[in-house]
Design a protein around this nucleic acid. Structure first.
Lengths: 128, 128, 128, 128
DNA sequence: GTGGTCTAGACCACC
DNA sequence: GTGGTCTAGACCACG
């Protein structure tokens, strides 16, 4: 009997992920300015260096473009922006499959369960 | 701009989840004895009260059966055991849909992407 | 009349450069272990985080390979190692040309001056 | 494992170097007036004493000629002015050789690399 | 011990 | 004000 505990993603990666979600959802669009390091840090009540770490990460992934003395901006490279959606989808599916695989269910049953839950979700949503 | 950070599950729920996974995977079977509170606490290097809390939770969910002076045992109620699988599956699908919904993809594309990734996973697994 | 002052390279980049030089000189070889963050920081009397920053940079440039709980190692990728020499040479030449270009000298004179200085250097070295 | 960090030149030497560059580039010519101590200090937002130190240095190197109550002037001694070019060139080559020497490359390869990079530089410059 | 994250706060160059 | 570097020191997971 062995257990491995949940390990929380580093905060800076959570920040990166949040930006990726915003991009995938269309909340952030190409070329749009993002908050300054200090401002976001203040909003999120985290350390500016942690935000800086997140922004550096996004810079390296070419998600944002940063120049000295001006606010960083979302990339205008449509290819990269599209890649974000792909990446998020792939990651979600991957996590899902990792969780579901040990249950040893045939694919068609998994799919039909998904369809079922989407259907129910749609209903409860229309209840609101 | 708003963010909500990952929050680690309480340890006792992580323990419960681990037992559920063991049951769903068939590692733990109906009627099988599970470690004593003290023993598990010692193994996991956590507080015995935390284990006790986890066991109480499982007791309430009828997952285990506890009698005085004998080791607790996994329930023999097949219905309950099957329910564990259902619950885990439902939870995984629910998480998955929550993540994927904002991407606004049609169901059939999601399904085909799942099939694709299963296929690839199978290939890379057979590479080992 | 305008002046721009020398701006010192960030310390972490100087550390990176030092490793690149060591590699180019053959002092560090493929797969060799490098000092731990704390150890190097202590030796150089700089902050461990600054060393960490340098090591991350090298990691991203695939110069070193780092795994958890074991000392980082120089990459074994010969292609990358060779690239280090190229990069250093290119950088040195580039700096040199930037300095020399405003002097408006013909290439052959530059070359002959270089040969002259190499020659003199060789003589004074053999004087030691 | 040993490292020596970049150390920024004293400001007064940076000022001197800037004048030398201006002379070598022909921006400053023989006999031309240079700014007063106070004026340059104000422009560069540095201490007038620092400028004074720089001018003293240039005076000692006979680069400028200072008389009471009139602006200092660049020397008219062609020999000295030519020497500035020599000095800068010699220094650049010296730095270059110091950097390149540990790479242990034959001279002809260094030269051919220089020619290559000049060629490329010319191309990209004509792209502008 | 190892590598890695995070904070708090100072400092810098640029405009 | 902006982005960026650096320090000092705490904390974590892993083995």
């Amino acid at each position: 009997m062995n257990i491995s505990f949940n390990t929380r993603d580093p905060v800076y990666l959570q920040v990166v992920r949040h930006f990726k979600l915003s991009i995938a959802k269309g909340i952030l669009t190409a070329g749009e300015e993002i908050p300054s390091r200090r401002e976001l840090a203040s909003q999120l009540k985290i350390n500016p260096n942690t935000v800086q770490r997140a922004y550096r990460e996004m810079e390296e992934q070419k998600l944002i473009k940063t120049e000295r003395n001006v606010p960083s901006k979302v990339t205008t490279d449509a290819h990269i922006l599209q890649g974000v959606r792909e990446e998020l989808l792939h990651e979600s599916i991957s996590n899902f499959l990792d969780e579901v695989e040990p249950l040893q269910l045939p694919l068609d049953e998994i799919v039909s369960r998904i369809q079922l839950q989407i259907h129910r979700k749609g209903e409860s949503a229309s209840d609101d």
